[in-house]
């Protein structure tokens, strides 16, 4: 192996490691949804190339209201789906669309766009 091949090989392996770590191994802890009147836990979610925040912590047993605001026209994100709760909503650009559900069991649940390209997590913690 020539020196440049060694450099490329080592660099490539490092890049592979970086990709695996960056996309799979590191996970954010999530944002705690704030409590509002009426017992709801509420969180605003910005939809633009992804969900911001993409990890939301809520307490089990209390209704949750996610307020989605889509600020892009890319067709990908026009719908948000919460498969575990059988919920979905169309997200017209520029509109705030509430999605409500009642998490009863602690655990991690996903919300995604219809094609599963954009992903977010709801982390339900025991109350």
């Amino acid at each position: 192996m020539t020196p440049d091949q060694i450099i490329v090989t080592v660099g490539g392996l490092a890049a592979i490691g970086l990709v695996a770590w960056f996309f799979w191994l590191k996970r954010s802890v999530g944002v705690q949804a704030s409590a509002v009147s009426g017992g709801y836990q509420e969180q605003m979610v910005l939809v633009k190339g992804g969900y911001t925040p993409d990890a939301i912590r809520v307490k089990a047993g209390k209704p949750v209201r996610l307020l989605f605001r889509r600020e892009e026209t890319a067709a990908c994100s026009e719908q948000v789906v919460l498969p575990d709760f059988g919920k979905s909503a169309a997200l017209p650009t520029g509109q705030v669309v509430p999605l409500e559900f009642l998490p009863s069991e602690p655990g991690e649940y996903e919300f995604t766009c219809q094609m599963g390209m954009l992903r977010g997590r709801i982390i339900v913690e025991a109350a």
């Binding site: 017992g39 520029g94 705030v96």
Partner: peptide, 29 residues
């Protein structure tokens, strides 16, 4: 929250598809 929890429809079915705090930029799909 009040109408949802005390209203006649259970929480599970209160998702309004195009409700809104909408703004002038709001558009249809």
């Amino acid at each position: 929250a009040a109408t949802d929890l005390a209203g006649r429809r259970p929480l599970e079915t209160t998702v309004d598809r195009h409700p809104a705090t909408s703004t002038s930029e709001a558009t249809s799909p």
